[in-house]
Design a protein around this nucleic acid. Sequence first.
DNA 1: AAACCGGGGCG
DNA 2: CGCCCAGGTTT
Length: 361
Amino acid sequence: MKQTTSSTIFPAPPDGAADALLSWFSENKRDLPFRRPGETTRADPYRVWISEIMAQQTQIDTLIPYFERFIAVFPTLKDLAEASEEAVLKLWEGLGYYSRARNLRKAAIQIQALGDFPDTAKALAKLPGIGPYTAGAVASLAFNQKAAAVDGNVLRVVSRLMDSPADTALPAVRKAISAWLLTWMPEDRPGDFNEALMELGALVCTPKSPSCLICPWRDVCLALKNGTIGERPVKSKRMKHRTEKIAAAIVTDAAGRLLIHRRPSNGLLAGLWELPNVTNSKESAAALKRYLESVLDTTVSDPVFIKNGRHVFTHITWQIAVYQLPLHSSATLKSRDWVFADRDDLKTRYPLPTAFSKLLA
DNA sequence: AAACCGGGGCG
DNA sequence: CGCCCAGGTTT
């Protein structure tokens, strides 16, 4: 008997949907560096984990070079657990959401202490940086455990298959879809099933202009049948935006080294390095000069305006005025959060967010 | 439940 | 250039 305790938000999936999906996947799956078989597992859990954390914020094609570099520097869990935070951040430079890099290292240390890589969604979810999605993804893709892994791709694919008007921004809807997927996930192939759902979302059931004509579900998809593909999935959340004016300084010493500052260990771009700057000041050039004089404990020349820049985050737009201040007298730096960095160290050592690195280009 | 956390791709 | 994309943590 099937589903005596059904009560999920959807009725049973269309007949043959699982078989059609798995057949399509076996013929169309991409050969990706984190999908090669593990020694004793479906895939290497360390690689799956790293790739899933990276995939949370980046499309696969963009992520691959980062992944390859990361694995080259930290080939094993042990290498990552023994790395410095700054070394991990440097490899993460340009990917954004830097707390994920810090959590990656913390979790590596915890897994080392455990001895074995956690192999259930429940155990994985205890690690920093691993929530419901990543826990399910690693458990199923690496260990073939029966667990849901509902990301944006899966929400879209499922919403369209069932022509669901449910708001996928709501945690309750995500939970309901997870529970529903478990009711028809093939017992012996959770990893293939989850990976196939995500691959379908990435290659065929894309957000805009999906390739419905070649979709394995073209005959059973309810949104396609009802002409509502463009309206699925339904998502409610919208966020506000604010603008900040930043005055940033390019300060070089007599040797041509660049003055940089480490940001605080919490908040936006935590722990990354930046050009010295002041925010939302009316007399920005004068404020910048005062700021630098207090930091360097010496008088500096008047800032010379160079150019304007602009950087857009999800919730903030920075309007950046860039000034130059060459130093001729020597300056004393008060803390390890201030450095004169030469060109080579800037490239290899200090993680600089895109907002600033593009100003120097 | 809502706010915070970044950068890249695309039309 | 405006618009879109996502999952985990913190408040």
